[in-house]
Computed example of a mutant assay.
Amino acid sequence: MTKIIRNSAAFIIVDAQNFVLHEKGLAAQWGAWKFAREKGIVKSTVKAIERFRAEKIPIIFVIMELRPQISQALNANLPDIDFWKPIKGLDFTKITREEGEFQGRVIDEFIPHPEDIIVAKHHTMSGFHGTDLDKILRSLHYDTLLFGGAITNLCVEGTVRGAFDRGYNCVVLSDCVTSISEEAQSFATEFVFPKFGRVCTSEELEIM
């Protein structure tokens, strides 16, 4: 069992949005949405969210926010690499407001509550880079961070690394993070994350 102290912990869910975790998402071709459902990761995360809310552990959603008004100019300066291609190739003048809102929304299964905290990041993997996440956590005196979300070895890993570099105690919930394949998931949870903190399932977490 991995023990945490209730009053010093927060659950950070990274990029759990339709664009990556819905079959109609702009990045659906990566396959994270399919992996998450086949492996029961969505269901495990729903249970974890319900448990943490009951335990009064805050839920913090870190989201990738696109800004259509300036994205055309930004896109021209994005590197031509696979991670950015789904965004770099978009013509925002042809995307309706409704479609844009759908892509950016947290998936229905995780729908945020009014008391949850939303932190927006822009064109970056880490939830700490260029955001007020660190300031929020320190002002509320949270030093232990539980992690879930997508994609395990991309934006989740980037955010965990950012937390580690800032001195936080990191706990990655292996049944609440999703990658695109078993190989990618296992490498992150078995080799990378243990270097930065602890790894356990949400059910193995003991709250004190």
Rank of each mutant, 00 (worst) to 15 (best):
Y142G: 03
M125G: 05
E157F: 02
S126V: 11
A120E: 14
S126L: 07
I118M: 15
F128K: 05
L140W: 13
M125I: 07
L137I: 07
H123V: 04
H123N: 11
I136P: 04
L133M: 05
A150H: 08
V156K: 10
A150P: 12
L140P: 03
I151G: 03
P114L: 09
L140A: 15
G158W: 08
V156F: 07
T124W: 00
I111H: 13
G158C: 10
G148Y: 06
D132P: 05
E109I: 02
I136Q: 08
G127H: 03
P114H: 14
P114T: 12
I111S: 14
L137W: 13
T131C: 04
P112R: 01
D108N: 14
F110C: 04
T152I: 10
F110D: 08
F128S: 11
E109S: 14
A120F: 01
H113L: 10
V119E: 02
R161Y: 07
G149D: 02
C155K: 02
I118F: 03
K121A: 00
H129V: 13
A150E: 13
D143V: 02
D116F: 05
L146P: 10
E157A: 06
F128E: 08
L154Q: 12
P112M: 06
F110K: 09
A150L: 14
T152D: 06
G148P: 08
F147H: 03
G130W: 01
E109R: 08
G148K: 10
A120Y: 05
T159G: 01
D108Q: 15
D108L: 11
K135L: 09
G162V: 12
E157R: 09
G149W: 01
G130F: 01
P114Q: 05
S139L: 14
V119M: 10
I118G: 08
K121H: 01
I117Y: 00
H122L: 07
K121F: 01
F110Y: 15
E157H: 02
F110I: 06
V160Q: 08
T152W: 01
F147I: 01
C155F: 00
V106F: 09
L146C: 07
R138C: 13
G148E: 09
D108F: 06
I107S: 10
E115H: 05
V156M: 11
H113V: 05
D116H: 04
L146M: 07
T124K: 04
L154P: 01
L145Q: 03
H129Y: 15
H141R: 15
N153P: 03
F147M: 07
L133Q: 04
Y142I: 01
A150G: 02
G148M: 10
L146T: 02
G149C: 01
M125T: 04
L154A: 14
E157K: 14
L154C: 06
I151N: 06
T152N: 12
T144A: 06
H113F: 13
I118P: 11
F147W: 13
D143I: 00
